[in-house]
Design a protein around this nucleic acid. Structure first.
Lengths: 371, 371
DNA sequence: AAAGTTCCCGAAACCGGTTTCGGCAAGAGG
DNA sequence: CCTCTTGCCGAAACCGGTTTCGGGAACTTT
C-alpha cells in the first residue's frame, strides 16, 4: 500500500503559516531579490534612495531574514557556542545565570544567539564540541575554565575555528581570552594579611590542571615576597575546590608545628570548609585565624563571620567574552582580543589582625585537643 | 575606487575549509543526492542494500548534514528555545546548571540543540521570544515559571508554535506541561506538622502571579482540612520569595496574638529569612517553632538547623521538558504531553514537635521583648 | 505474451537567502 | 558628438540540503 515516498519517521509536515520572504519585499517594490539583499546588507552599489525605500518596506512588512537560510550561502549562523561541563560535584554554580545573562545579552545586542550544551566529563565536552562544530551549530565558541593544556583549544585551533577562552592557557598562540587577574587578587590578599600583622600565611590552591590555579599561587608567592616574608612550601597544601577538601586542607595546616595564622584560598567553596574546622575547634575566624578567598559566591555572605573574598563579575565576563568572540568571528586577529579585568575585594569579617602568634596558636590547639 | 560589489561591513569571507556534503557522498557511490537524502532519512522507497551502502559511506566519509541547510526546506532547525528571565534579585539560581544539563542532555540524545537567551523584564522576555520566533531560531520553546495568565503562552498558542510549560496555567487548552506537584508537597508538609502536634500552622506563599503559588496554598489548605484544623486567614501572609520578605513575613506571624508554632513556606529562600528572625529573638527553629519549605536549594543544607524541605529534581525536569517538547514538535497532540512529578521530602532539623503552645509562645516572645 | 504492479532510483524543482556577472543609462572627458 | 567611466540594478547561478514526479526494470497476473 505504500506509495513510494512515504516516510517512516513520525515527522509532521511543517505548518503552512506563511512568512514574509525576501521575494515578498522585492515584489512589493518591483525590484529583484538581489537588490533587496544587497540593500539590507550594506553593499555600496545600491543608491541611497533605493536603500531607504527597501529598508522601509522591509520594516513595514515585518521582514526578518531566516538566519539559517542566510547561513547556507554565507556559512554564518550568527550563533555563539557554549559547552559547559556539569559534573555532579559542583553542578551548583550560583553565577551561571549571571554569566549566561552576560553572554546572551551581548549576543542579542548584535542580533546573534547562543547555542548551549552540557556534558559531564571532559571527554563528553570534547565530543559535544565536535558535534556542534561538525554540524556548524555555532560560528565560534566560548571556552570556560581553561586548562593549562586544553584539548578543546588544541582542537579548535587546529581547525581554525574562532574561539575565546574564559581563562588563560600555556600556549597562547592563536588564542583570545578574557580573564580575571586572580594573581593580582591573591597578591593583594597576601599583602593585606601581611599588613594586618600575619607572618605565616598559607595558601590552598585550586585544581592543578587549571591555569588559574598556577596564577593564583604565583600571586600568593609574589605577595609574600613583597612583604618580605619567606616562602614555606609546607604552607601550600594540595589542591582543594570543594567544601570537604577545604576542610581537610585547613585541618592539615592547623596541625603544623608552626601553624599559619592566615589562609588564602583559591576558591570560596574550599574556604567555607574552614568554617567547619573553626566550629569544631572553637576558633574564631577573623581573630584566631584569618581567611581570604576568591570567587564571590553568595554563600560567603551568609557565613558567619562573612567571608572576605575577591569577587568576580560573572555577568561582565560573559558580556565581554561574547563581544570579543563576535569580533573574532568577524575577522579580528586573535592577538588583539585579550582582556584582563580585576577582581574586586569584598571586605567582610573573616580576616583581621592575628590574636595569637603561630606558636601561641599551636599551643592553644594542643590545649583544646586535651579537653 | 570601489568596484561595485564592495561590502561596507567588516564581515570576513567565510573560510574555505571544505566540508563533506551530501553530493560528495552521492558521487562517491555513483548515486544521486536525492537517493542519499532519502536513504538517510528513513524513506521506505530505498532498498535495504542501498540504504546500508549509503549509511556506511556517509559514516566513513564523516558526513554530517548541516541542520541549517536542512532547515531551509524542512522548516526545522532541530533546536529547542529557552528564554530565561534573569532579574537582579534572584539571578543566583543554584539549580540552573542542573536544569540546563537536563534540557541539553535530552536534546543531544535526539541530536537536537538548545538555543538560550535571557532578559531582565517580563516585557524583555516577550520581545526576545518573538525575535527567536520570527527568525525561527528554534522549533519550539520551553517556558519556565509560568504565570496563571501568561503572555508567552498566549502568543505562542495564537501562532500555533510548539511549546511546553514548566508549571501550569489557568487556561490549559493547547498546552503541554511538566510540573512538580507542589500542592501535594504542601499538603504533606502541613500533615506532617499536624501529626507532630502543631495546631496553628501558617503559610507564606510565593509570587501571586505564578500558578504554583495558588496550587501550594491549595495544598496547605487541604492539609489543614485533612487534619481537622480550621483555616485562619491571618495565618496566610502576603507573598514572599526573597530572604528579606521571608524575614518580614515571619516577624509578622510571630507578632500575632496567637502566633503559629509552625510555618510552611512556598519557597526555600523565604524560609531562610526565618532563620534571621530566630537568631534575633533567640528562638530555636525545630522546637520553639518549626519550618518546612519547598525547592531544595543548597543553602538549606548549610543553615542551622538544616532546612526541612521538599526538593525538586531540576535535572529531571529539564530532561522531561525537552523530551516532551521534541515529541510535541514532531506532531504529538498537546493534551497527551502533560506530566506531573512529586517533590521529595528532605528531612532535616527545622521541624519537630512544638515545645510551646501558641499562647506560651506568645508569652515567651513578650518576655523577650522586655529584656 | 501482454498488461498491470511494485520496487527503486534519477532528474529536476524547490526552500530563502547571497553573490557573481553583465549591461543599461547617465555623466564625464576629449 | 563620441567614447569612457561610473552608478545602479536585473538575471541567474549558487549554497546544501529535501521533496515531487516520473520512469525503467523486475515481478505478477491473466
Amino acid at each position: 500500500m505504500q506509495t513510494g515516498s512515504t516516510k517512516t519517521s513520525n515527522e509532521q509536515p511543517r505548518r503552512a503559516r506563511t512568512r514574509v520572504t525576501i521575494a515578498d519585499v522585492a515584489n512589493h517594490l518591483g525590484v529583484t531579490k538581489s537588490t533587496v539583499s544587497r540593500a539590507l546588507n550594506g553593499y555600496t552599489d545600491i543608491s541611497d534612495s533605493t536603500r531607504l525605500r527597501i529598508s522601509r518596506a522591509a520594516e513595514r512588512l515585518g521582514y526578518r531574514p531566516l538566519s539559517h537560510a542566510q547561513a547556507i550561502r554565507t556559512g554564518r549562523v550568527r550563533s555563539l557556542g557554549l559547552v559547559l561541563q556539569v559534573d555532579n560535584e559542583d553542578s551548583a554554580r550560583p553565577f551561571l545565570a549571571d554569566f549566561i545573562a552576560g553572554v546572551t545579552q551581548a549576543a542579542s545586542a548584535e542580533n546573534w544567539t547562543v547555542t548551549i550544551a552540557t556534558a559531564e566529563t571532559e571527554r563528553g565536552v570534547q565530543e559535544t564540541l565536535s558535534r556542534l562544530v561538525d554540524e556548524h551549530k555555532a560560528d565560534g565558541f566560548i571556552l570556560p575554565r581553561t586548562r593549562s593544556r586544553d584539548k578543546r583549544v588544541e582542537a579548535l585551533r587546529a581547525q581554525d575555528i574562532p574561539f575565546i577562552m574564559f581563562g588563560r592557557t600555556e600556549d597562547p598562540s592563536g588564542c583570545s581570552w578574557y580573564d580575571i587577574k586572580g594573581e593580582d587578587a591573591m597578591r593583594a590578599a597576601t599583602a593585606r594579611l601581611a599588613s594586618q600583622g600575619h607572618r605565616r600565611i598559607a595558601h590552598v590552591p585550586g585544581g592543578s590542571e587549571y591555569t588559574y590555579s598556577k596564577l593564583r599561587i604565583d600571586g600568593y608567592r609574589d605577595g609574600l615576597a613583597a612583604a618580605g616574608l619567606s616562602i614555606d612550601p609546607a604552607l601550600i597544601t594540595s589542591p582543594a575546590i570543594t567544601h570537604d577538601a577545604g576542610e581537610a586542607a585547613t585541618r592539615s595546616l592547623l596541625m603544623l608545628a608552626e601553624p599559619p595564622t592566615a589562609i588564602t584560598f583559591a576558591v570560596d567553596r574550599a574556604a567555607l570548609g574552614a568554617y567547619r574546622v573553626a566550629q569544631d575547634l572553637r576558633l574564631r575566624i577573623g581573630s584566631d585565624f584569618s581567611v581570604i578567598a576568591y570567587d564571590g559566591i553568595p554563600e560567603g555572605a551568609y557565613a558567619n563571620p562573612g567571608l572576605t573574598t575577591f569577587a568576580v563579575n560573572s555577568r561582565q565576563a560573559g558580556d565581554r567574552l561574547a563581544s570579543l568572540l563576535i569580533k573574532r568571528i568577524r575577522g579580528a586577529a586573535p592577538e588583539e582580543l585579550r582582556e584582563l579585568a580585576p577582581a574586586t575585594l569584598v571586605e567582610r569579617g573573616s580576616d583581621g589582625p592575628p590574636r595569637l602568634t603561630p606558636a601561641e596558636l599551636a599551643q592553644c590547639l594542643k590545649d583544646k585537643q586535651k579537653t
